[in-house]
Amino acid sequence: MSASGWWEAASRRVPIAGWPAWARWLAVALLYLWLFAGFWLMFKGSQGIRLLGLAMFAAGLPLLAHSGRILMRERSRPADRRYVRQFMPAMLLYIVVMLYVWPLQQGMPPGWLKTATVLSPVVPIIWVIWGSICYVLASDEMQRLQHLVALAIGVSVVCVASLALGFLGAARMIVLNGSLALMMVYPAVCITYGVARCVLVWRARSE
């Protein structure tokens, strides 16, 4: 049974709504600690340690999508479980590519093979984006509006921050790594969008 399926079976036996608040927050904190430990091990030590970290991260990743439901005392919807089935293999593929495929480009001569190797991490990211689109389309009208507003807020925040950093860099007040800055745009949008949506959901529930 997968980690996601195990969680669904366990939550049916012990309803999340019956958990005390401290237990729900503790469960989420332990999940994030587990994921952080696995991610850290993937970049430390021998090959065996890195594989152990990858296995730990893979085991905890399906439960990440359920963490919000835990805190909100809700059961995961079928759309949530479908998103996990798309998101998990895509992210695992991204991690494997970044660990074992992308570094190979350092010793390659310029050409189509090096270009394909360099761009290989983009493929699982497209998979993640497609899964996110399917997840939003499976939501109801109110949830779609929340996604849209949260995305607008996230993109606006990242655009303003990028513009400010660009002006500071042009004035030589700070030194920017252009490649790193471009690579951080998508994660920054994801983070700001996620925070904005959490706030929107919390406000909707408190009204």
Rank of each mutant, 00 (worst) to 15 (best):
M1E: 08
M1F: 06
M1G: 13
G5S: 08
G5C: 09
W6E: 14
W6Q: 14
W6N: 12
W7T: 07
A9S: 11
V14H: 15
P15R: 03
P15D: 06
P15M: 04
A17Y: 06
W19K: 01
W19I: 02
P20K: 03
P20S: 01
R24M: 01
A27G: 05
A27P: 03
V28S: 02
L31E: 03
L33P: 08
W34G: 06
W34N: 08
L35E: 07
A37S: 05
F39P: 12
F39Y: 12
F39L: 15
L41T: 01
F43C: 06
S46W: 00
I49G: 00
R50H: 05
L52F: 03
G53M: 01
G53R: 00
G53W: 01
L54S: 09
A55N: 06
A58G: 12
A58L: 10
A65Q: 15
H66F: 13
G68P: 07
R69V: 05
I70M: 02
L71T: 01
L71P: 03
R73Q: 15
R73P: 05
R73N: 06
R73G: 11
E74I: 00
R75F: 09
R77D: 15
A79G: 08
R81F: 13
R82K: 07
F87H: 06
A90G: 09
A90R: 03
A90S: 12
L92C: 13
L92G: 09
V97P: 10
M98G: 14
Y100D: 14
W102D: 04
P103I: 12
L104P: 01
L104R: 05
Q105V: 05
Q105H: 08
Q105L: 04
Q106F: 05
Q106S: 15
P109T: 08
G111D: 01
L113N: 00
K114T: 04
T117W: 02
V118K: 10
V118W: 12
V123T: 05
V123F: 12
I125Y: 11
W127N: 10
V128W: 08
I129P: 09
W130H: 08
W130D: 11
S132D: 04
I133E: 14
L137Q: 14
M142L: 14
R144K: 08
L145K: 12
L148C: 11
A150K: 01
A150S: 05
A152L: 14
S156V: 06
V157P: 07
V160I: 13
S162Q: 10
L163K: 10
L163Q: 11
L168A: 14
L168T: 04
R172C: 08
M173I: 14
I174R: 11
N177T: 09
N177E: 13
S179M: 11
S179D: 08
L182K: 13
L182N: 14
L182W: 09
M184R: 06
V185Q: 10
V185E: 02
V185P: 04
Y186E: 15
A188K: 02
C190K: 01
C190R: 06
Y193T: 10
A196I: 02
A196R: 01
R197A: 02
V199E: 07
L200K: 02
R203E: 14
S206G: 09
E207G: 13
